[in-house]
Design a protein around this nucleic acid. Structure first.
Lengths: 213, 213
DNA sequence: GGTGTTTTCTAATTTGAATTAGAAAATACT
DNA sequence: AGTATTTTCTAATTCAAATTAGAAAACACC
């Protein structure tokens, strides 16, 4: 056996065994393939045989690394959340301490959306699949996701407390509508006329215009 | 056999055979149940046995009215689109001819979102399922949906031509982002603190604030 | 109240995909 | 080179649902 839960925290730079052993690399290759196929086909449409083919192996071999299809799904979901949250927080934290709250919000919007639009398979797959996954998996994931939701709530509340938001705005509704605007994008975005950055600019301008005083 | 394609246009008030015969009513009951279960469980999660139970019948009996699970899916998709488009156009058309284009847009936003949030099972199911449905069905539906997309494009272009929109706005991106804001709502909305109308107001204010000059 | 027709049910059957078992192949270690 | 260990493959097996067949029940019409 080789499988281990791969919790990709900052912590795993310590134990340099991730891209390390061949086994670990194969596991990663399968997970990457799963993310890709789940993003493209959705939860129901992705068969283990498709995932195996994308990872250049056979369906039966997946079980050497993952206990079940659902285990694979769950790990893709979690990794997708970690990537969106990680990238968003990283870019917001990189702002200087005196950055106005409204600009922090703009940065978060761009970071989240660019992560999705750059076809990060994990994040896109995670967003698309969550509502279609079996209940126990969804429940577990939503608990983890709540942390990211709280992060957005804080961003909005900080902007509100700084008096930068329009009067009459309901922060809960605004948060869900805003995240919806971003999260629906995997359904329509295809490489095309506008780059991810350009679309992210449009989204940030649109959202801030709608939120700010 | 009783099945017929039930294209619910305004036209079918003419032939008064829809809520009419018992057979037609049973068929409708099954379709309603399917819409409900598809909305709740998603495309993959909804089993024919669930749909049958919700329609107070047995799985085998569904085949008397529908050729297959996919036929049922497709009819729910189409009906959902018709309802959203129908309600939106109806409310926009009810505006007086001299209504500013920006207010037409606001009305469309409210109409579309209220249709979804009032838990219209067909519309919500349609929005949620589209990306997860087998390719031939999706392709056919997208062709029909393009008409509704064009309707939104026209609303936006009219507002743009009237000089009511912000400079630098990309209308295609704005349209997808706006519809995303609305279409993601079935993923999070639950009867709760805010009514559909209140949320629709928030969405309209937010969207217009982001779009208008 | 009997006969034909429509509708519904139950009990197979089919299908498609996940999963498991166990043999083979590759790899690592001495 | 020889043995043990890890990894992968193929070929069942299992499982969950959709679908079909055909018997029963309900209904309509005479």
């Amino acid at each position: 056996m080789a499988g281990k839960q791969a919790t990709l925290d900052a912590a795993d730079a310590v134990q340099p065994d991730n891209g390390g052993s061949k086994s670990a690399r194969t596991r990663q290759r399968i997970l990457d393939a799963a993310a890709k196929v789940f993003r493209e086909e959705g939860y129901a449409g992705a068969r283990l045989a498709d995932i195996a083919a994308a990872a250049d192996t056979k369906a039966g071999s997946l079980y050497y690394y993952f206990a079940s299809r659902e285990a694979l799904v769950e790990e893709v979901l979690d990794e997708g959340l970690d990537r969106a949250f990680g990238e968003t927080r990283r870019r917001v934290d990189a702002l200087s301490a005196d950055t106005p709250t409204i600009d922090r919000l703009a940065t978060a919007i761009r970071a989240h959306l660019e992560t999705v639009l750059k076809l990060d398979n994990y994040t896109s797959a995670s967003i698309r699949m969550l509502g279609h996954v079996p209940e126990p998996i969804r429940a577990r994931h939503m608990k983890r996701q709540a942390v990211y939701g709280a992060y957005w709530r804080e961003l909005l509340e900080a902007a509100g407390a700084a008096g930068e938001l329009r009067d009459g705005l309901d922060l809960s509704a605004a948060r869900m509508l805003l995240l919806g605007m971003l999260n629906w994008s995997p359904e329509w975005y295809r490489r095309g006329r506008l780059s991810p950055e350009e679309i992210a600019d449009q989204a940030a301008a649109m959202a801030l215009g709608g939120l700010r005083k």
